[in-house]
Structure formats: C-alpha cells, structure tokens
C-alpha cells in the first residue's frame, strides 16, 4: 500500500471511527448500566454508562421469574429447530437451483415459485386460519414451518454454488457419485463460510422474531423470549384499561425499569455470544453469495 501518512488526517479518521464505534455500543452499555442501578436512580434519569447505586436486585428478581426462563427455553428450542430446518431446506433447494436451465429444465419454474411466494402473501388472517386448520396453534411448529423456506438465504446460497468450479462436480460424477453424494461431499465442504453465514441469519431471525409468537401462541407459557419482552417490557400499558381496585393495587408493585433493563440485556446475550464466532465467516459469505464474477 502507498504510504504518505498525514498525522492530522489520521487522527481525524481514527477519531471519527472510534466515535462511531462508541455510538454503536452506547445503547447496550446504557442498558447494562440501568440493569445494575437502583430503581429510583433509573426513574430520575441519572444513569448513563455506569451503574448508579450499584446493586444486583434486578438480576435477583429475574432469577425468580419463571416466565422469563420458560420464554428463553422456548426461544432456544425454536432457534435450534428453526435453524436446522432452514439449513436442510436451503441446501437441498439451492443445489438444484444452482444448475442452469440446460442441465435442469424445471429450474426456472421453481425459482419463480420462490420469488412469487416471497412477494405475495395471503396476509396475516388467512395465514392464521391455515395454521389453525392444520392444528398448529400453540405449537412450536407454527413458528418454524411457515418460515422454513428462507428465500433470501437460498438465493445467497444458489449464487455461491454457481461459483463452485464445475470440474469438481464432473470429477466426482465420473467417479460414480450421484447428486446426493456430490452435494454432501463436494458442495457442502467447499461452502463453509456461506453456510455459516446463512446459519447465522437463521439463528438471528428466529431469535429476534416476536410477532408470530404473539399471533400463534395461545398461552403465554409458549411465548418465545422476544414476544415475552415485547409484551412485558415494551408494551406494558395494561394499566390504562384496568378499573378494578384490587387489580390496580397489585399492579402498582410490578412496574420496574431496571428489571426490564436486566431482561433486555439477558435476552441479548445469546446474540452477543454467538455472533463473534460466526462473524469471521459472514463477511466473505455475503460477498461471495451476492457479488458474482
């Protein structure tokens, strides 16, 4: 690389970048600080990046909250199941779709079916009725099956598969390998970065979804974590509709900003833990999948 460094310019560049990086973590730090602060300090807005009146009360309280951990469990189950299904379907669909029309005549029909379903949706109410008809309400499958075919990931994978040298496949084919063998022994091992990327996307997608949980789960026990957080933390306006005295009395005690911060922070942890491992793959994964030679 060319070297004609100018110290002033460098300082500005590094300064700006550092500032931007700080802006990106600031909200997370603020939440962390709130979760360790006292309730009074939080309400009166004294908490920034360091806890005020440091204490662990919020976390102690979360530990007692069965609903939170049950929701956490549902989310984990959903992520494992959902990402596994997404993975299998993506690999199985992307491989034939990466073939050209000459090799695989039906290819374009399938491709358009994918695109069509991505663009047109029957809408929430018909989808709900369908799920209800299949008897899937309240079942984890209602969260996993309607999203089983991740069109975006498949397109990414198709583009990546297209870039795999044909010679590899031909060589394997001459050795007598069928399409399944070729997929498993040639394509999958050479696609680790992009497979890691789409897995990361699936995991994040399933971990972050809240809306379907709200619609399809009939009992709060079956909520995934994000639905729980949305209902309990973000959308906590139940009080406006309560006129029953003994209820009001009871609800007074429930509200708690620091407790909410603790819950929000805990629900970020899996992403914070999972992400650095896959991060080194996904840049190359995305690039290889979308920018074609």
């Amino acid at each position: 690389m060319v070297r004609d460094r100018n110290l002033a310019v460098d300082i500005i560049i590094y300064g700006v970048l550092t500032l931007i990086a700080i802006l990106c973590v600031a909200p997370i730090l603020n939440t962390l600080a709130l979760s360790f602060s006292s309730r009074i300090a939080a309400v009166s807005g004294k908490v920034f990046f360091l806890p005020v009146d440091f204490n662990l009360a919020s976390y102690r309280e979360v530990l007692k909250d069965h609903a939170f951990f049950r929701a956490f469990g549902v989310s984990v189950e959903r992520v494992v199941l959902g990402a596994a299904i997404n993975f299998i379907i993506s690999v199985l669909m992307a491989y034939p779709l990466s073939k050209s029309r000459r090799i695989f005549p039906g290819r374009n029909i399938y491709m358009w079916l994918l695109i069509f379903t991505m663009l047109f949706q029957g809408g929430l109410i018909p989808l709900y009725m369908t799920i209800n008809t299949y008897g899937l309400l309240d079942s984890i499958w209602a969260l996993v099956l309607p999203t089983a075919v991740p069109v975006f990931n498949i397109i990414l994978l198709v583009n990546f598969f297209k870039g795999i040298p044909k010679e590899l496949e031909e060589a394997a084919s001459i050795d007598g390998a069928g399409p399944w063998k070729i997929l498993f022994y040639v394509y999958i091992p050479t696609s680790v970065p992009v497979l890691a990327t789409i897995t990361l996307f699936s995991v994040v997608f399933h971990w972050d979804s809240f809306f379907d949980g709200m619609i399809y789960m009939q009992h709060p026990e079956n909520w995934p974590l994000q639905t729980y957080i949305q209902q309990v933390v973000v959308n906590a306006n139940q009080m406006n509709n309560v006129t029953d005295p003994s209820e009001i009395k009871r609800l007074m005690a429930v509200s708690n900003q620091t407790l909410n911060a603790a819950k929000v922070f805990l629900s970020m942890i899996p992403i914070l833990v999972f992400y650095p491992f896959l991060q080194r793959y996904f840049v190359s994964g995305i690039v290889l999948g979308s920018v074609k030679e």
Binding site: G123, P126, L127, M129
Partner: peptide, 12 residues
C-alpha cells in the same frame, strides 16, 4: 412447505 404455508393461505 411453500405450498402449505404460502400458496394455500393466498386463497385468503
């Protein structure tokens, strides 16, 4: 899966 969860609801 697409037919079950995407195409059929489209009649809605």
């Amino acid at each position: 899966l697409l037919i079950l969860f995407q195409i059929i609801p489209m009649f809605g």
